[in-house]
Amino acid sequence: MHALTGRIVLAAGFMFFANAASAHVGFGPTVGFSNGLAHPLFGIDHLLAMVMVGAFASQLGGRAIYLVPASFVGSMMIGAALGVLGFNFGLTEFGIAASVFTLGALVAFRSHLGLVSAMALVAAFGLCHGHAHGTEMPESVNGLVYAAGFMLMTATLHAAGVSIGLLITRITSRYGDVVLRSLGAGVALVGAGLMAGAM
């Protein structure tokens, strides 16, 4: 069972690894609520990072289940505003790639970070993701509506990650933790490819 799970995760990781360098922002129009909703679903880096934030929160349990994702979304809003205003972080793309790797690794190793540390870490990543989106957005009402869409989808993906984490560990009981940690390892592998492409 363990060997089979490992092979599946490794194969999935290599499949995504091939496209790692071109995974992030710049896909599709950046105006309108529906475009904002769709945008996070078409960037593998954002999609995986959001789900891993939720899975990581589910592993920590307790108040982390909602406070860790909330810290990401709140920081993402700040990052988006800074992006729209023209502030340049310099390492935004690398930070986004690092978020995929780090969050996957945290899930893979079942990290027991304290609540404040976990919130601070995901907030730093949220700033990077938000900044990347903000630099794409027009300074208009359409841009704000777009932002509302991608914020809502981000929160939805966090909730999906929490649900996946809880369901895997509870329904599959004996092997649940192994399956979830294996998924984290696969995401970390994708993140390593993204980091290589962002350098």
Rank of each mutant, 00 (worst) to 15 (best):
G83T: 06
N142P: 08
V25M: 15
L85A: 10
F89Q: 03
E136N: 11
N35F: 13
G114Q: 07
A49S: 08
E93S: 06
L41G: 02
L67P: 05
A120D: 03
P40C: 02
R110W: 13
V73K: 06
S99E: 04
G126W: 00
V53L: 12
L82Q: 11
L85T: 03
S71Y: 13
H112K: 14
L60A: 04
N88R: 05
F125V: 01
G104W: 00
P138Y: 06
T102D: 01
A108F: 06
L67A: 12
F33G: 09
F87L: 14
Y66D: 08
A148S: 07
V73W: 15
V141F: 15
V73T: 13
M119G: 03
S71F: 14
H129S: 06
V100N: 03
G95K: 06
A132F: 07
S75G: 15
E93A: 11
F101K: 01
A64N: 13
G32V: 08
M50T: 02
A147V: 02
R110K: 14
G32Y: 11
L113P: 07
A38M: 11
N88I: 04
M52P: 03
A64D: 12
L60D: 03
V25F: 15
G86T: 04
L47A: 04
L41W: 11
V145R: 05
S111W: 09
I78K: 09
S117C: 05
I96L: 04
E93R: 08
M77R: 11
L37T: 10
L127T: 03
F56Y: 15
L82Y: 07
G74N: 13
G149W: 12
A80M: 12
L37S: 07
G130N: 09
I96K: 00
V84N: 10
C128N: 15
S75F: 15
H24N: 04
G83L: 09
G36F: 06
C128K: 14
G61A: 12
V25P: 13
E136V: 07
A38W: 10
A38T: 03
S117L: 11
G32E: 06
A97F: 01
H24C: 02
A81I: 05
V31L: 08
F94G: 01
L106C: 11
F101W: 08
I44K: 03
L85E: 08
A120P: 03
A23Q: 05
H133K: 04
E139N: 10
A124Q: 02
V100G: 01
N35Q: 15
A132C: 10
G83E: 04
A148D: 02
P69S: 08
F89T: 02
M50D: 03
G83A: 05
L106M: 13
Q59L: 14
A23G: 09
G126P: 07
A105S: 13
L60I: 10
I96Y: 00
R63T: 12
E93I: 07
F56S: 13
